[in-house]
Design a protein around this nucleic acid. Structure first.
Lengths: 332, 332
DNA sequence: TAGACGTTGGAAAACGGTTTCCGGGAGGTT
DNA sequence: AACCTCCCGGAAACCGTTTTCCAACGTCTA
């Protein structure tokens, strides 16, 4: 293990000088010494010990990213956006996957705090349980008290900078668009009601339907993933249009309908939410509400890394754009 | 910032005792003192400074994962498998995405070395350029010389433990299966030839076709992703069956055919390789060669973490299983 | 030519833990 | 009662950097 001291000795300079040449930035070092140090470092194959550096500097070059599930294209897209920003700033990324367990999310914040990461990004819907949220907040406050920065992609419940998808409005606009096609009888494939995002989407959708004076949609709950969509879709009947609260559930629903011989959009229209990349390759192409996922991840990290806005947490709302494709058409 | 010393003072014990209670493991501490320390730590909200711990211990609790592209379901699946193993061992995961740039891969190994991560997992096909491989090996040797562990999912070219998908054999078996359906005229949507995995798959496929005495397949090169598959597929003509060297290229090919009004499998059969999860939702379901992706990632990390086999690097071959679905049928 | 000043190099004190010793006390054996 | 162990607490060295002083050395100005 080659240390900076070895390099300094080999170059015939002091530890301080070697440090200034190889890592430090504040002060100048004369050209001749600088060259000697660089040569010595190369010859010995010196690698900075980041742990020591972090300890001495009191700040690391790592950010933490907490997502629910990396194999879900929704999270992969957001993570990718964030990672590009991190890379452009020379930061490494530490990832934790919670598999939708709020306890794990809290535990990860604690661990990332111990790692003294520069910033933590929490990606994914918040939960409705106030006690869980309170505990997470406590943990985050603790982290921030020691200089950590935090941002969230989800709902503005943590007192930190947040990128908020406008779930209600997006769902409402989708509802109006679908009603505009002539649909009157809707089913909603809803997620679990302890997650806020799916709940908001349900409310936005039903609210708009009510305003239009149409019969209230039938709400079928399932888990917030493909299997949940599949399972909930098997219980659908007597409607002309199905709204799945996210795309992966919609994908599950399409599979379910295919397996049951229900044609989309012939027998029933289907729409999702998020516009994950995978949708390009579905048949029929899925109607959805587009969210700029990669941008959301990038933006959130930029907020976390940027100067704190006078201590005041900022919330940026991202509005979705309704995109009607072939999976929806008028009834009959 | 609460330090261990604060905790020790608050509890009225020595630094050593506090350390032993809160982090250390080797030695026992009597119940009364132990309780006092734990109480003090809780009251003060103490969080271990992992950087200091890493420095003192000389080993971290982090592993590095280097993949080409996280939004590609192939890599997401492997990463997920590896991350589950990491989590079960209480390790954090630092991820780097190279976007298929070998230079970035080398740079990441260097950075992860500086981070003193416990182990590094390199996921993705090796390149044909020996010079690049040599430089990567140098960097890896350097890392291993200081106690780092390395494993690879790809080809056994780095002198480290490796999980090797049997690309030639898988492709050959797929070729025989497709020929068994009656096909004689094949096109291969090949990846760039500076990547070994796609090249091996092409060779395995053509080799088997030759052995059967059939005309040599036409090889069309494209990038190793969906767009490459799409582009290459637009140049396909006069064949009854197309083999895309991985599933995401096959997905691109399906899109291309769909856009051009070429029916699959009516006009042309299409097969891919890897069996990524996304395939479940394609229409028609894609024939492919199944690789146990999550297991491969998990296995590789286990090898990296396990005891070194007497210094000898191990190579585990994973054979693929041909799966014929509806995207392939006999010609005519 | 003396004094002030701006550079540049080095010694040494942090940073926050872990771990090796060392010492004292309790318990067991002859 | 003397001796030997074993167990457990504490003092202090150490991990590899960064960074604050401090000193030495031109160079410029008056």
């Amino acid at each position: 293990m080659v240390t900076l001291e070895d390099v300094a000795r080999h170059a015939g300079v002091s530890l301080a000088t070697a440090s200034r040449v190889l890592n430090g930035s504040t002060r100048q070092v004369g050209a001749p010494l600088r060259a000697k140090v660089e040569l010595a470092a190369a010859e010995l194959g010196y690698r900075t010990n980041v742990a020591a550096q972090t300890l001495a500097r009191g700040a690391s070059n790592v950010i933490g990213l907490v997502v629910h599930d990396l194999t879900d294209p929704y999270f992969a897209a957001i993570a990718d956006g964030a990672m590009r920003v991190a890379e452009s700033q020379g930061l490494m990324v530490m990832i934790g996957t919670t598999h939708r367990d709020p306890e794990r999310e809290i535990a990860y914040v604690s661990t990332l705090n111990a790692q003294r990461v520069r910033a933590v990004l929490l990606v994914g819907s918040r939960v409705t349980d106030p006690e869980t949220t309170r505990r997470l907040r406590t943990e985050l406050d603790h982290y921030r008290a020691s200089g950590g920065r935090v941002a969230c992609v989800g709902q503005d419940l943590l007192g930190v900078d947040t990128v908020v998808p406008d779930n209600r409005r997006g769902a409402a606009e989708l509802a109006r668009a679908l009603a505009g096609l002539g649909h009157r009888d809707f089913a909603i494939l809803a997620g679990p009601d302890w997650l806020i995002a799916p709940r908001d989407r349900v409310e936005g959708f039903t609210g708009a339907i009510e305003e239009l004076g149409l019969p209230a949609p039938r709400v079928l709950h399932g888990s917030f993933d493909r299997e949940g969509g599949y399972a909930a879709a098997t219980r659908v009947s007597g409607v002309t249009c199905v709204f799945a609260v996210n795309d992966v559930m919609a994908v599950g629903a399409l599979a379910s309908f295919r397996d049951r011989g229900v044609r989309v959009p012939g027998d029933v229209s289907v729409a999702g939410f998020d516009d994950i990349l995978t949708l390009r390759d579905l048949v029929p192409p899925l109607s959805t509400v587009r969210l700029p996922l990669a941008d959301m991840g990038a933006r959130a990290l930029e907020m976390a890394l940027g100067p704190s806005e006078g201590g005041r947490a900022e919330a940026v709302t991202m509005t979705g754009e309704v995109i009607l494709r072939e999976s929806t058409r008028g009834p009959g």
